[in-house]
Amino acid sequence: MGSRSSDRRPLLGSLLLVLALVVGCAVSEPEPADWSESSARALESAASAVATARLALSGEKDGDLWRSYAVVLLADAEEAAGSAADQVAVVQTPRGREKRAEQVRDLLGRAEDAVRAARQELVAGKPITAERLARLERLRQRLLREAGR
């Protein structure tokens, strides 16, 4: 008995390995519900990045932050917005959601662009306008609305 069961062990092991490889390498198409959830999460983190950028800009405008602090905040926010966009871009869109996916990607791209533009202007030393702050605020609200929160 003992020798037979130990003979089987390598076989069992290789079967498990093959199974793991098959499961691991298959292209997975997410369930529509999971996809909605993860895109909502990406929209939320983009909103968070935009809000942080706006706080950093308004702080700099009011003289509450020193320049390097605001720049670091904006650079980090830019990175966060970028990774939120990547989060959606790398996932296969489920069938029937292509239009919605397009819309989400577009919004996330706008968020990333807005934060980057804010960072560039700050580094270039351009004055911060109330108009830019208002635009960031509108974008943040839009992102949260789209996220359904």
């Binding site: 939320e44 968070s48 942080t52 702080g59 509450d64 932050l65 670091v72 905040l73 943040r140």
Partner: peptide, 24 residues
Amino acid sequence: LGVSVETLGQVGLPVGLALGKIGL
């Protein structure tokens, strides 16, 4: 605002907004 804190800069940001550069 729905901001999630992911950096140390964000941790200190409220202090800057409330107390200005010196407080920060």
